[in-house]
């Protein structure tokens, strides 16, 4: 059986999904990146390996997410794809009539506008990461509730508090102020959910024509409070696909299947043995010019696999 592996290395979580030729998920994993993508990719591969059926043959591997270049080098991927394209492809597969995709992840949020099965426009949060998953998680921690329970609290709210949503620093001081004035925690949490959606509307979705069906994916789509707030703000039904957190990885796997078909090549995937390789990540300051760029490199068995981080491409060329 031919299968395709998608690896989505996000800022907060690392996701892997293995699909067969009819895009059924055969194996998947969802891990916290914990600031250590190299180990998490290895651990993810281990877990997928345990789940895969015996007859499965890996015919293509793609990486996506902000850690896609690193992951691509580690596993020797056939395709390294940006997360916007991957998310769009996965959304169109799960909900064929989709016209708008909201994706809110750990560090960034996106909107993708689709018409007649083709992406025609997209937007991403600009300068700051206000109103993304990390912020919600931080606030949950501060209020001493689990992020998984965040949605339940929000749904119980009767009179949501008005929280400033433009900037997380303002939002936090607003929340503390409301909390000290005795607002119930439910109302503060739903108020925060509304603020996040308002910020999304003013920042990411500004000037975009939002038409149904609206698909909401990414880790934050687990949060029922945010779903309710989107529903109220945009007056439209919100579809959350069954594997909202895996959509990037699913899209990447679908894209590599397409690619390998067109290409006819064999996969370059190094195999699950990658999880046994010791990778060394290090960095140094390049002194070739006044820019003093910080170059980071990844190597295995004393051999440099790739380098990044320069203002010029001097270090990016690595002899194979």
């Amino acid at each position: 059986m031919k299968t395709y592996l998608g690896i989505d290395v996000g800022s907060v979580t690392t996701k892997l999904a293995l699909l067969d030729e009819s895009n059924e998920i055969l194996a998947s994993t969802y891990l916290q990146t914990q600031g250590n993508p190299v180990d998490m990719i290895k651990q993810g591969l281990e877990e997928v390996k345990k789940q895969i059926p015996l007859e499965a043959e890996i015919c293509g591997v793609a990486t996506t997410g902000s850690g896609r270049a690193l992951a691509g080098v580690m596993v020797s991927a056939d395709l390294v794809k940006n997360e916007i394209t991957a998310h769009a492809v996965a959304a169109m597969h799960c909900v064929p009539e989709v016209q708008t995709v909201f994706e809110i992840g750990g560090q960034d949020s996106k909107i993708i506008i689709i018409r007649d099965g083709v992406v025609i426009d997209f937007g991403m949060n600009s300068v700051c990461a206000a109103g993304t998953g990390s912020f919600l998680e931080h606030q949950a921690e501060r209020l001493n509730i689990k992020i998984e329970d965040f949605g339940e609290y929000a749904l119980r709210s009767k009179n949501p508090a008005r929280i400033a949503g433009r900037c997380t620093v303002f939002a936090e001081s607003d929340m503390i102020h409301k909390q000290q004035m005795g607002y119930p925690i439910d109302d503060i949490i739903y108020g925060l959910s509304q603020a996040l959606v308002r910020n999304y509307l003013n920042n990411v979705a500004l000037g975009k024509e939002i038409r149904p069906k609206l698909v909401f994916q990414g880790g934050v789509a687990f949060n029922k409070g945010i779903i309710k707030a989107i529903n109220e703000t945009f007056h439209t039904e919100v579809y959350v696909p069954p594997h909202n957190e895996l959509m990037g990885a699913i899209g990447a796997a679908m894209l590599v299947r397409e690619e390998m078909k067109n290409d006819g090549h064999r996969t370059k995937f190094k195999g699950f043995g990658v999880s046994q390789i010791e990778f060394q990540v290090s960095s140094f300051i390049c002194k070739a010019c006044p820019n003093l760029c910080e170059i980071s490199q990844i190597s295995a068995n004393g051999k440099v696999l790739a380098r990044w981080g320069g203002r010029c491409d001097m270090w990016e060329r690595v002899e194979k």
Binding site: S66, N82, I84, D108, V119, D121, F122, M124
Partner: peptide
């Protein structure tokens, strides 16, 4: 440059997929 590169790649992908240039 990560954020910039992601946007540029996605933009070109969008155009290519629109025109079915594989």
């Amino acid at each position: 440059e990560g954020g910039l590169v992601t946007r540029l790649e996605a933009f070109l992908d969008m155009i290519k997929r629109r025109q079915r240039i594989w």
